[in-house]
Design a protein around this nucleic acid. Structure first.
Lengths: 342, 342
DNA sequence: CGCTCATTCGAAAAGGTTTTCAGATTAATT
DNA sequence: AATTAATCTGAAAACCTTTTCGAATGAGCG
């Protein structure tokens, strides 16, 4: 167990004071070149390491940043975190992760815990958009800790956000289905209290409108983001008097469920039915019948969130700049909707 | 911006000293019941929050734990991290993540950075098993910081590890293929310098031996863990004089590549050729032709690693207990190898 | 020689908590 | 009533760094 050596130890050895050592090591200009060199050399020889905890206490900055996500074992969130880590690591920040598991209570706890741990910023995708109780968020803002939402965001003054253009995502996916000759396009919508799902829905609607297709309320089904929900939903659709011939799903998992159910019923994809999903989950491209999907450029979203944080962290002004970054979605056309390629 | 209030502020208000406040808040038994209540009450009323950085400096414990993985956007690593976070969060630990991107240099840097940040422990899957240079690891051990390897481990005295029984994983997968009637089973092996891949290979070999099938060197192909590598490898196998009728792949991705290539060549799976992979990646069960795979119980691995850490963190003894936990693998039989179900 | 000014460094406080040692108060015992 | 024991609290050190303020030294100049 190597003894902890401090700047006092160095000072004692050189018959100077700890203050001088500190200044020398921090390149303070008011130190003679010769003493600086001497200090640096002996510090190295004594194997001195700065105590980051003492520095954190003194400066009030922990050099940690908190990231809160519903869960980490989802490709999307993991990719975003990867982007954040890669962008922030060169700046000396460490990334602390928290999971909410879609619980508003956990989300609150995580916020308070991170502030208690004195993180220098928080990047998160919100779990709880419905409640009006912003207390935890206001607490963060009071402490002047930069707060950045990504993907799922909430309208709070002073909070920046990084999202993709979900409206456009919904639009181009739907437009693509129309271009492939689909006439009756259904939609699996997610929880409409989230902006992301609402906007995908609105994009879908607008695309229909722009191409002269009348919107039908019964073609919109609110589904959870899992395979079984997709199966159920498509079953309902097929029971309609005039069933659709395509689905734009807000979720890749629900899209997969729909495809499985359609195959079960011997409906030919994409000849008789097209499907497009959202998120570009890895499995969509691995399937034998690969699934068309809208990519959210998750890695880029993470990096951008980190950049926004870096911009805000040094602004000591109380004038918070609220920045809204919107990334472009990208449609990956695959077999589940490629009639032209057949 | 709410003013930071300290135990001194509470002390002043109550005409007592900060020491008493500290003791009262920490349930020190040598404090009168009445004063304790009073302190707790006024602390709450003044909205006091303990300064974790000061505590960390004083105690030398940061309440952070570092996790180092090659990358986070892989289902396996993300799941393990999820397990770690869920197990440790109730104990007040925060999880800091680092990525190595399979670079030995980055791995070293991460180790030093985490120690500098005074984490209370490190849980990692090693990137660099070949080099003899253990300096960074020794540095961690010198500081008496618990170090736990999961999955990919390295033989270092004093380091605990949590792995699955890869030998058994390879054995049961191969045995399953034999039971399905396969006579000539090939193997996609990973980098043999890693124990995990070597053991899967040995399990494969043993299963052949136990069932009277002669091992053929030319049936073993060293592949990277990606789709294209699997395609290439299976192509080589099919060029052999007596090509195999099954593959046990150490990687799900390579298994997928093999399947794609086999289909391309109109070889019927599983009737004429069976495939089994390793890792139980999500896509293996989503495929139309779902892929048999060995599950690594990643979530459990994470939780177990965290538990081992908790056991070691409070042992102030210098007598380090080196604990080796081996979890049981589980074979998930799916269509790519289920002849009996057809 | 005396003054100013720049340069370089030291003393001490600040950041907030825990903990050891000892002192004070009260209660119990003789 | 006096001594002892038990209980409670205070003072100060310790954790380690940065930073403000000011002091000392020496050079340059009148």
């Amino acid at each position: 167990m190597s003894e902890k050596i401090t700047i006092y130890d160095i000072a004692k050895k050189l018959n100077i004071t700890a203050a001088t050592v500190s200044r020398a090591l921090n390149n303070n200009p008011k130190i003679k070149e010769s003493t600086r060199d001497l200090v640096i050399k002996t510090a190295a020889s004594m194997n001195y390491k700065q105590n980051k905890l003492a520095l954190a206490l003194k400066s009030g900055r922990s050099n940690n940043i908190g990231v809160i996500v519903p869960r980490i074992d989802s490709n999307f969130f993991a990719s975003v975190i990867r982007g954040i880590e890669e962008e922030l690591q060169p700046h000396g920040y460490q990334v602390i992760i928290c999971q909410t598991h879609e619980s508003a209570k956990r989300e609150n706890e995580n916020l308070y815990t991170l502030i208690d741990a004195q993180v220098d910023g928080i990047i998160m995708s919100v779990t709880d958009v419905t409640t009006e109780n912003d207390a935890a968020f206001q607490y963060v803002l009071e402490k002047n800790v930069p707060l950045i939402f990504f993907d799922r965001s909430k309208h709070i003054d002073g909070v920046s956000s990084v999202t993709i253009n979900d409206f456009k995502g919904g639009y181009i996916a739907t437009q693509h289905l129309i271009n492939e000759g689909c006439k009756a396009i259904a939609h699996f919508s997610g929880d409409q209290s989230f902006d992301i799902f609402k906007n995908r829905f609105l994009g879908y609607k607008q695309a229909l409108l722009d191409h002269g297709i009348t919107f039908k309320e019964e073609y919109v089904i609110n589904t959870k983001s899992n395979v079984d929900a997709g199966k159920e939903a498509v079953s309902k659709l097929l029971e309609l008097e005039t069933p659709p011939d395509a689905i734009f799903s807000s979720s890749d998992f629900a899209a997969l469920g729909a495809i499985q159910e359609l195959k079960e019923r011997n409906i030919n994809i994409p000849k008789d039915f097209c499907v497009a999903g959202f998120s570009n989950e890895p499995f969509t491209k691995f399937m034998e019948l690969s699934i068309t999907s809208v990519d959210q450029s998750s890695l880029e979203m993470g990096k951008m969130s980190a950049k926004v944080f870096l911009e805000q962290v040094d602004k000591t002004d109380t004038i918070k700049i609220e920045k809204k970054v919107v990334l472009a979605p990208e449609l990956h056309v695959r077999k589940s909707s490629s009639r032209t390629n057949i």
